[in-house]
Nucleic acid binder design. Structure first.
Lengths: 202, 202
DNA sequence: GAAGTTCCGCATCGATCACTACGGAAATCG
DNA sequence: CGATTTCCGTAGTGATCGATGCGGAACTTC
C-alpha cells in the first residue's frame, strides 16, 4: 500500500478531483441526493459522466464522499463546539455554527445532513439511512460531551445529558429547516440567544 | 354554482376520492413529493393513472390537495394549540401534537410539511416553496397568538412574540427531523418537557 | 329502450433517469 | 522512439419518469 507513484501510471486525470467533489457537494447540498441529477452534477463539476464514475464510483459513492467532505468542511463547527470548555459553550458554539453554515449568503441554504435525504424513494433509502445515522451520531457525541460536563460539575445535579443533547440537536435541526425556508440568520441568532439565556433547561 | 346533481351526469366514478387522497397523502408523507412516483401513488390509491389525472389534475395538484388534507387532518393540532388559553398552553400543545403526529406507531414518521420537499430539483421548486410558505405561515400564526398573549399580560414584559414563535417552531421542525431519524416519542417528550420547564425563554 | 355523458384499462408518448461500451487522444514508461 | 496505460468525449443502454390518446364499457337522463 505505497502512496508513491510506481510503474507505468498512464495518462493522469485532467481535472482537480478535490474541486470536482466540492462542487458536487454544493449541488447535493442545494437539491438533495435524489434531486441532484447526474446531468446537474457533471455540469457543475465540469467533467463528463465517464470521469465521474471512474473517479468516484457511482452516484451513491459520490454522495458519501460529498457528505464526508461536508462533515469535515462546512459542518466542522460540531468538532469545535465539542471542544468548548463548558456545556454552555458547547451549546452556544453549536447553534452559532449551525446558523452560520445554514444561512451563508453565498451557497445553499440549510444543512446537507438534514435536507440531503429526509424523505426518499426506495432507491434512496440507503442514503436516507446514512444521513439519519449521521444525525444520531452527532447527537450521541454531544451527549457524551454533556455526560463529561455533568461529571465535572459543569451541569446542575440531576441534569440528564441525553435529554440535553436531544434538546440542542433538535434546535440545530430546526434551525436547518428554518434556513431552508429562507429565514435569515439575524432572526435565528436572536432566537438562539433567547434559548441560551435559560440554560440549561433542567 | 349548485351542489345538486343536475343534467346528464354520466357514469359516476368507481372509487372513493376521499380515500384515494388519504392514501396519496400517506405516500407523499413517507417518500416526499419527488420521491413518490406516480406508480407508487396509483398503486396505493388503487386506481389507474388516468383516474388520478381525471380526478386531481396532475401530480402537483394532487400534492397540493394532499397537503391541504394533511393540514386539516394530522396537523390540526396547530389549530388546537392556538386555541389554548395561555401562551404556555400554546407551546405545550404544539410540541405535544407535533410529537404525537410525527412518531405515530402506524404511519409515516416525520412531518409532511417538512420532509415533503425540503430540497428538490428544479421541477420541484414550486412544491418546495409551497411547503416553505406553509411553515412560515404556521410561524406567523403562532407569532400573532403570542402577540395577543403579550397584550393580555400573559407573557413577561419585553418578550418578543416573533422570537418566541421562532423558538417553538424551530423546536417543532427539529422534532420532525428527529422523528424522521427514528427517534422515539418518549425521548422527544422528555426533551419537550425539559424545554417547557423554562418558559418563556426570555 | 335510446341517447348522451363519463369513467377507466390499455398502450404509449417523449423526456429524463443513472449508467456504460467504445475508441481515439494523451501522457508515462523503458 | 515504441509500447503501454489511462483518460475522457461521444453515443447510446434499458428503465422509469410524469402525463395522454384511444375506445369500449358503464351509468345517467330522457
Amino acid at each position: 500500500m505505497e502512496t508513491r507513484k510506481k510503474g507505468p501510471s498512464g495518462r493522469p486525470r485532467g481535472f482537480d478531483a478535490d474541486q470536482a467533489l466540492e462542487r458536487a457537494m454544493l449541488v447535493f447540498w442545494e437539491h438533495g441526493y435524489e434531486g441532484a441529477s447526474l446531468a446537474a452534477l457533471t455540469d457543475a463539476m465540469g467533467i463528463s459522466a465517464t470521469s465521474v464514475y471512474a473517479a468516484f464510483g457511482n452516484k451513491q459513492e459520490l454522495f458519501r464522499k460529498a457528505m464526508e467532505r461536508y462533515a469535515t468542511g462546512p459542518s466542522d463547527y460540531l468538532v469545535r463546539a465539542l471542544e468548548q470548555p463548558t456545556a454552555r459553550g458547547v451549546a452556544t458554539e453549536l447553534l452559532a455554527g449551525t446558523i452560520r453554515t445554514t444561512t451563508r449568503p453565498s451557497g445553499p441554504q440549510g444543512c446537507l445532513g438534514v435536507q440531503g435525504a429526509l424523505a426518499a424513494s426506495d432507491s434512496g433509502r440507503e442514503v436516507r439511512d446514512l444521513l439519519a445515522d449521521w444525525r444520531n451520531d452527532s447527537c450521541c457525541r454531544i451527549q457524551e460531551r454533556f455526560r463529561r460536563a455533568a461529571d465535572e460539575g459543569d451541569l446542575p445535579p440531576g441534569t440528564d445529558p441525553a435529554v440535553l443533547a436531544r434538546y440542542v440537536t433538535t434546535l440545530a435541526f430546526g434551525i436547518a429547516v428554518q434556513a431552508a425556508s429562507g429565514v435569515c440568520g439575524d432572526e435565528l441568532r436572536a432566537m438562539a440567544d433567547a434559548a441560551l439565556r435559560t440554560w440549561p433547561p433542567v
